[in-house]
Amino acid sequence: MKKYPARKTLGVACLFAALVFVSFAGAASPGGTASPAAPSAHDDVGARRAFTAAYGVFLHPRCMNCHPSGDRPLQGDDSHPHAQNVQRGPLGDGKYGMKCGACHQKENIPGPHRPPGAIVWRLPPPKMPMIFQGKSPHELCEQLKDPARNGGRTLQQIIEHVSTDKLVGWGWDPGEGRTLPPLSREEFARGIKQWVEKGAACPE
C-alpha cells in the first residue's frame, strides 16, 4: 500500500463508488428488468459488471503469479513465493544466473511440475510492476486505465493485449497439472472489450 500516497483520496473515492454501486444495484434488481445497454453505449453498470467478471482472471494464479505485489514471482495454485528465491530483477526477467530463461523455455516442458514456458517469459519490470496481487477490483481497474501504471497502453491496446498477447495466452495453455482461469480466453477478452466499450467504469 505504501506505493499509493493518495490513499486517503482513493479511500473516499472507493466509498463514493460503493454507494453509487449499491444504489444502482438496488434499482436494477427488482424484477431484473433493466435492459442491457447497446454495446457501444456508455453504461457504467454494464462496464462494472464486465470488469468484475474479468477480475477473477486477473487474480487467478495463472495470471497473478507473475504480477506479484513483491519482487518475487509466485508459484502454484496457492501462489506461494517462487522457490529458489527467484527475483524480479532490474528488467523483470530475473537476476544473475537466475533469469527466467534459465529454466523457462519457449514452450511448456511436458510432465507435472516441469517449468512452464512461452515465447516470452518474464515479470513486468520494477519501473512498471503492474501488480495484480492484493488489488481490489476498483484498484486493479483504475490501474489498468492509467497509462502510467499499465505499461503505457491505451484502452484499445489493453483489449489487444488480453486478446492476442502470447504470454497472456499461456494462462489458458499452462501445461500439465495447472488449473485454468475461471473464464475462457475468449470470454475474458470479450469481457474486457465490453468493459472498454461501455465506458470502462470501475467497480465500487
Binding site: A83, Q84, Y96, G97, M98, K99, G101, A102, C103, Q105, K106, I109, G111, H113, R114, P115
Partner: peptide
C-alpha cells in the same frame, strides 16, 4: 531433470541455463 537443483548449469551465450530442461535446439 526439472530445473530444481542447478547441477546441470551451463552458459548459453553467457547466460546461465539449466541444461537438463533446455532443448538442444535452443
Amino acid at each position: 531433470g526439472m530445473a530444481q537443483c542447478g547441477a546441470c548449469t551451463v552458459h548459453l551465450d553467457g547466460e546461465a541455463v539449466r541444461s537438463c530442461v533446455t532443448p538442444v535446439s535452443r
